[in-house]
């Protein structure tokens, strides 16, 4: 009898590939989003099987939960607008065949490159694990993943946060307006649920941030949980974005990036390079950066879900038909 875990892994891998294909090929966009969400959940499980709980947490919280919510919101938005448009028939045949073949060739090249990279890499090496383990005492934290993300390769993480910041800037440029619909009536059962769940979810979000120093967790995972809490607050109409809140929102968007970059440059003031935290202050600095990053990530993800700058609309951009 084969190893049951191997059988499980094979089924899991096949399911992940199948769901990815399904999400790409299915005609109905809603079904596509749902398949994508399930795909993300199984990917998170796959990361657990690969002994990467940090990545699994991030995949489940951001890749699945929040991205799923963003996609559903986008779909809702598109359908609302497209209904007024009398959707033009999207013909699959309109793509020129030369373009298709070029795409296919490029895709095959990428697959071949990846395959070559995997097959060409030496088998069963420890990779950078030993290097990280050696340097871990100097990093200020005990979780190797956090040490890599916030210390050894911190510039990489800084760029990720900048990407998020750029996304929200673009969204606020594209769409503005105020939601004048009344808050949805979700009933007393929702009220009771929110009363118990919202505070507890906030505690769990901050806990994930705190735990990142020596266990799986960190700014992105904690920020995603807090953003999800914020989504419930937005959906339940408990908080309504207001034009007067924009300066605070902007401040919170840039808080993490500014603090991250600022600290990186400040520590360079001595005879160090940027991002080279002094060893005895490394933990405090990392926790400070992570805390501020979490706030920025949570608020930015919330704003992305809300999907517009809360400002009075001066021009009617919507196309009449």
């Amino acid at each position: 009898m084969p190893d049951p875990l191997l059988v499980f892994d094979l089924i899991l891998a096949a399911a992940v590939v199948g769901l990815a294909l399904g999400a790409l090929l299915v005609r109905d966009a809603f079904a596509g989003v749902l398949l994508f969400v399930v795909f993300g959940l199984l990917s998170a499980l796959a990361w657990v099987r690969l002994a990467a709980p940090d990545v699994a947490l991030a995949e489940a919280a951001i890749g699945t939960g929040l991205t799923g919510a963003l996609l559903l919101k986008t779909l809702h938005h598109l359908r609302g607008d497209l209904a007024a448009w009398q959707s033009p028939p999207v013909a699959a045949a309109s793509v020129p065949s030369a373009l298709r073949w070029t795409n296919a060739a490029l895709a095959i090249l990428i697959v071949a490159g990846l395959g070559w990279a995997i097959l060409g890499s030496p088998l069963r090496t420890t990779g950078l694990e030993l290097l990280v383990a050696d340097a871990l005492p100097h990093s200020g934290v005990e979780n190797p993943v956090t040490a890599v993300l916030l210390n050894f390769r911190a510039y990489d993480t800084l760029m990720e946060v900048v990407v998020l910041l750029a996304a929200v800037i673009v969204v606020w440029q594209i769409e503005r307006g105020l939601d004048r619909r009344p808050a949805p009536d979700l009933g007393p059962v929702w009220q009771g649920f929110a009363r118990l769940t919202l505070p507890a979810a906030a505690i769990v979000g901050v806990y994930l941030l705190w735990a990142g120093a020596d266990a799986p967790g960190g700014a992105f995972q904690g920020g995603a949980i807090l953003a999800a809490t914020g989504l419930l607050v937005l959906l339940g109409g408990l908080y309504r974005p207001d034009p007067a809140h924009r300066p605070v929102a902007r401040l919170l968007f840039v808080l993490g990036t500014v603090a991250f970059a600022g600290i990186a440059l400040l520590v360079a003031a001595g005879s160090r390079v940027s991002f080279e935290y002094p060893q005895d202050q490394a933990k405090a600095l990392i926790l400070l950066i992570e805390g501020l990053l979490t706030i920025s990530i949570a608020v930015t993800l919330m704003a992305l879900f809300h999907g517009r700058e809360p400002a009075a609309q001066h021009r009617e951009i919507r196309h009449e038909r």
Binding site: L186, G187, V189, W190, G192, F193, L196, T197, A200
Partner: peptide
């Protein structure tokens, strides 16, 4: 506990 609560609430909603 929270899964049971959200299960019942989601079903109702």
């Amino acid at each position: 506990a929270f899964a049971a609560l959200s299960g019942a609430t989601c079903g109702h909603l």
